[in-house]
């Protein structure tokens, strides 16, 4: 069975301005999203996340490479037969009511007229918008608009849902609704691809992530794999002074050193732990506790950003 999303060597170069200056929005990238998986595309503004999504939706044409949805090239409309999409900061047809908008989405998704009423009721109930279904969208708050957009994406029980910043601007209740929806979709076997800046959401929801910086994927994989190589340990040395510890441990082996009462706390990278422990034991110092510290995804993200700072903001050819 084909993956929900497959990208191979996908790149996009925009021509900008009067002189058609070339700006590389995406360097060749490869990634795959499987059924029943939540995949997060994370990265700073201008990293190419939205461009990647737009290529998948056939909103922009790739400069090179291939993109397929369920094994069908994205150029073909049938690749989007089982797809739901919510764009970033959507401005839907404001003159339509929520109900009319969902009816339109049902028709576009290819649903029969006989099943439309039932489907409209189902998706509006799912996002708790039944009461406001008859109101025009221009009368909705931002959160209500986002809910109707989500309802539109759920039409026809799609096997792939693409969400661009789905929780931005939502209140805590709205954010929980989005998170619940994503988990529910995964439970039902659908694939979810979403872009966000909110790392706590990524950690909570994603099975795998790809970190996109300046159009290239810097890191990708399971969150546990991404943060593993930046894992650190806190080593507690009892009844010792800072000087005693520094006499046996090389300064470059410790990331940070703190003195708390009669204890010295050493923060050590995973790769240096064995050397530091050996040095402390050889120096007759007492190690009372070793505690693993898991660096949050946000730190990994920031570290990758700092490392690639010159490349950010679109690469000029």
């Amino acid at each position: 069975m084909s993956a929900a999303v497959e990208c191979e060597g996908l790149s996009k170069t925009y021509k900008v301005g009067f002189l058609a200056r070339k700006v590389k929005a995406l360097q060749p990238i490869d990634f795959q999203v499987n059924a029943g998986e939540v995949f997060g595309l994370i990265g700073p503004n201008g990293a190419g996340k939205s461009t990647a999504i737009k290529v998948l939706l056939n909103l922009v044409m790739p400069t090179s490479g291939k993109a397929r949805l369920f094994g069908v090239d994205v150029n073909e409309p049938r690749s989007r037969e089982s797809l739901g999409y919510v764009p970033e900061a959507p401005v839907p047809y404001e003159h339509l009511s929520g109900e009319e908008y969902i009816q339109l989405q049902c028709a576009l998704a290819g649903l029969k007229a006989s099943t439309t009423k039932q489907e409209v009721t189902r998706v509006l109930e799912r996002v708790d918008m039944t009461r406001h279904a008859k109101l025009r969208i221009r009368q909705y708050s931002k959160g209500m608009t986002q809910r109707v957009m989500l309802a539109g994406a759920l039409v026809g029980q799609p096997r792939l849902v693409i969400l661009d910043e789905p929780t931005s601007g939502l209140d805590p209740l709205g954010r929980r609704l989005v998170r619940d929806l994503i988990l529910e979709l995964r439970r039902d076997g659908a694939a979810v691809l979403f872009c966000t800046h909110i790392m706590s959401d990524v950690e909570m929801l994603c099975d795998r992530v790809a970190l996109l910086i300046a159009g290239t994927i810097h890191k990708s994989g399971r969150i546990s794999e991404l943060v593993a190589d930046t894992r650190t340990h806190e080593v507690v040395v009892d009844n010792a002074t800072k000087e005693q510890v520094l006499a046996v441990v090389k300064p470059e082996d410790a990331l940070r050193l703190e003195v708390v009462a009669q204890r010295v706390l050493l923060h050590v990278a995973d790769t240096r732990l064995q050397d530091v422990l050996r040095a402390l034991v050889n120096g007759n110092l007492t190690v009372s506790r070793i505690q693993s510290e898991r660096i949050p995804l946000e730190e990994t993200f920031m570290a990758a950003l700092r490392a690639s700072a010159p490349q950010q903001g679109g690469d000029l050819e």
Binding site: Y85, P87, P92, A109, G110
Partner: peptide, 14 residues
């Protein structure tokens, strides 16, 4: 401008 076209073209229509 309003990106409403995204909501239409992302459906299985040409």
């Amino acid at each position: 401008e309003r990106r409403t076209v995204f909501l239409i073209v992302s459906r299985p229509i040409s």
